[in-house]
Simulated assay, not measured.
Amino acid sequence: MVTTSEIVSLPTLGAEAAQVTDRHGPRAALAWLGRLRRAERLLGVVLLVALWQILYSTGVTTDETLSGPSAVWGSAWDRIADGSLPSAIWVSLHRVLIGLAVGLPIGVVLALAAGLTRLGDDVVDTSMQMLRFIPIIGLQPLIIVWFGLGETAKISLIVFGVVFPTYINTYHAVRGIDPRMLELGRVIGLGRLAMIRRLVIPGALPGFLVGLRLAFGVSWLLLVFAEQINAREGIGYLIVQAQAFYQTDVILVGLATYAVLGLVSDLLVRGIERVALTWQPSR
């Protein structure tokens, strides 16, 4: 915990923090420093964009190799205005959500089966531990053979990617539940389903949410490859079209859109964690 004396001793922010401390107390000073820290996190992004602009302005990069920030922003605004970018975002988001809706339950059910029974552990976990080392992208040719070039193939690639982080984190969370809690449930007469609902699921929730964050990240990464399987719409389609015409500004718009959507989804899961895990002492 940062004390008032420690805040005042900070070399560059001491005077301002001390004034905040004098007026509102140490808690207000800590909140002020927290806001400053969040602003500092944007510094790296600002410096990166500045370097990018300098390279473009000095001719190190060109429109054919790497368009400048202003050109990328203009391209993004044009596609927002004509509706092509919002439409592509909705199509890509729809694919990710369907992939999550299918993959998450599969991962959770497999984790419960492996974590709660010895037979499930022997049969399911060994297979899952083996399969998770197969590169998901390496399955793409098989997925095309199985499901063709339509939406099913694209979503299936995301489903495969979502299942494994969900399973691994939920499985370890289930195995990490205190056995004394399960024994207490048996003593008070809880049945199998009641035990899972009242003890196992709350105990495994933190691990599941970690898996959810990873699953969101994997789903956006795999979407880049999925939307290059004969795609007719979506962010990946915009990127492929731009590649054909050497439009690096449009390619960067697509990549930046993927990054922003990934960041928003991660922040969403963090918000769910804060609401769902309020019972934890550290929150």
Score class of each variant (00 low, 15 high):
Gly236Pro: 00
Asp63His: 09
Gly234Val: 04
Glu40Gly: 14
Leu93Gln: 07
Ala88Pro: 08
Asn230Pro: 01
Leu104Ile: 15
Ser5Gln: 14
Val45Met: 10
Met181Asp: 04
Leu252His: 05
Val162Arg: 00
Tyr56His: 15
Gly59Ile: 08
Gly150Ser: 10
Leu142Trp: 10
Leu149Ser: 07
Val210Tyr: 02
Val46Tyr: 11
Glu183Pro: 05
Thr58Lys: 09
Tyr171Cys: 01
Gly83Phe: 09
Ala111Cys: 09
Asp63Thr: 14
Ser70Lys: 12
Pro135Gln: 07
Gly236Val: 07
Gln140Ser: 10
Val108His: 01
Leu252Ala: 13
Gly234Asn: 04
Trp77Met: 13
Ala153Gly: 14
Arg41Trp: 13
Ile144Pro: 03
Leu33Gln: 04
Ser67Pro: 02
Val260Lys: 09
Ala29Thr: 15
Ala226Pro: 02
Gln280Tyr: 06
Ala71Cys: 06
Val264Asp: 08
Pro26Leu: 10
Leu199Phe: 08
Asp125Ala: 15
Asn169Glu: 08
Leu142Gln: 06
Arg118Asn: 11
Ala76Arg: 04
Val102Ala: 12
Met128Leu: 14
Ala50Glu: 06
Phe216Asn: 00
Gln241Thr: 14
Arg118Tyr: 09
Ser265Thr: 15
Gln140Phe: 06
Ala50Phe: 13
Ile229Asn: 02
Val159His: 00
Gln140Thr: 15
Trp279Gly: 05
Thr126Asp: 11
Leu223Asn: 00
Pro11His: 08
Leu85Ile: 10
Val275Ala: 13
Leu221Arg: 07
Ile134Tyr: 04
Leu13Val: 11
Ile229Trp: 02
Met130Trp: 09
Ser265Lys: 02
Ser9Cys: 05
Gly115Val: 07
Leu209Tyr: 04
Ser265Ala: 15
Asp78Arg: 12
Arg232Met: 05
Gly68Ile: 03
Ile272Thr: 13
Gly103Asp: 02
Gly68Lys: 05
Ile136Val: 15
Arg175Leu: 11
Thr65Val: 14
Val275Asp: 05
Asp266Ala: 12
Tyr56Ala: 14
Leu184Asp: 04
Phe208Gly: 01
Trp279Cys: 07
Leu139Gly: 03
Trp32Ile: 01
Ser67Trp: 00
Ala231Cys: 08
Gly211Tyr: 01
Ala17Trp: 01
Leu209Trp: 03
Leu55Glu: 04
Arg27Gln: 13
Leu30Thr: 10
Thr62Gln: 11
Ile54Leu: 15
Pro26Phe: 02
Gly161Asp: 03
Asp125Pro: 01
Leu263Asp: 03
Ser70Arg: 12
Asp121Val: 03
Leu263Ser: 10
Gly236Arg: 03
Val72Gln: 02
Leu221Gly: 03
Thr65Trp: 07
Val269Glu: 05
Met1Trp: 04
Val163His: 00
Val46Asn: 06
Val260Pro: 03
Arg132His: 10
Ala194Asn: 06
Val145Arg: 12
Gly120Ala: 11
Leu10Lys: 06
Leu119Phe: 13
Ile188Ala: 07
Arg274Ile: 09
Tyr246Pro: 01
Tyr171Ala: 02
Val224Lys: 01
Asp249Leu: 05
Leu199Gly: 03
Leu36Lys: 09
Ala111Trp: 02
Asn230Cys: 04
Ala29Cys: 12
Arg270Ile: 11
Thr4Arg: 15
